[in-house]
């Protein structure tokens, strides 16, 4: 090639798609007037076309399966986690039991103390909570380790844990009444409450 190396450089710039418009003009003008360079340029372009035109190979059909079979075995723990993720309800229950069983007895004992949800017009007498006649208590009423006598109206759910509730004939509860007396009821009560929170956590974790 007798021409300036600069022209070959410009050819490469062109082929790399990095030539600026000014240099492209120089290259084009030169190619019009120089047969040798035009031939060289066309050979480059043909070479690229031929290389690009080689057929695309496909991995063997069982390739992915072979790779997966060759991977080091995953830890047991992880298989368990995936299983739990695919079974959120059971996962929620399992997680609850795992987390709660240890502290359950102490929670249970702590909760032997009397407690009641805070509504102004509830009356408390010797461990008995009274919804007085003619009164309307708004919101859910929860009584722990005590009794509940409903003579008025509760606009909400009533839950009595480890105690009993009496609904007087004049009394009225707009929501559900639930008594939780046994340890297993206690667990179940917490599970239902926790389950939805746990599922939320699992769903968050999926993101």
């Amino acid at each position: 090639m007798k021409c300036d190396e600069k022209i070959v450089e410009l050819m490469h710039e062109y082929l790399d798609e990095e030539i600026d418009p000014e240099n492209e003009m120089i290259l084009r003008d030169h190619l019009k007037s120089c047969k040798d360079c035009e031939t060289l340029f066309n050979e480059y372009k043909r070479t690229i076309a031929v290389v690009k035109g080689t057929s695309r190979m496909q991995a063997p059909p069982n390739f992915t399966a072979n790779v997966m079979a060759s991977l080091p075995k995953e830890k047991k723990k992880v298989g368990m986690q995936r299983w739990l993720r695919n079974h959120p309800l059971i996962a929620a229950a399992s997680l609850f039991i795992v987390l709660m069983t240890g502290s359950l007895i102490s929670t249970w004992n702590q909760d032997r103390e009397f407690s009641v949800s805070k509504q102004e017009n509830l009356v408390v007498e010797n461990g008995t909570v009274i919804v007085p006649e003619g009164e309307v208590v708004k919101g859910d009423v929860i009584v722990r380790n005590g009794e509940l006598r409903i003579e008025g109206e509760v606009q909400g759910d009533v839950t009595v844990i480890n105690g009993e509730q009496y609904l007087a004939s004049a009394g009225n509860v707009t929501g559900q009444i639930e008594e939780v007396n046994e340890v297993f009821d206690w667990i179940w009560y917490h599970m239902k409450r926790t389950a939805f929170e746990v599922i939320d956590i699992f769903n968050d974790g999926e993101e």
Partner: peptide
């Protein structure tokens, strides 16, 4: 996180180009 099965899809997506490179 340890979910080995999720890797299969990655292999599937790139298997041809990596095989091609090797070839």
């Amino acid at each position: 996180k340890g979910d080995q099965d999720a890797f299969a899809e990655i292999v599937e997506i790139y298997s041809n180009s990596i095989y091609q490179l090797g070839y």
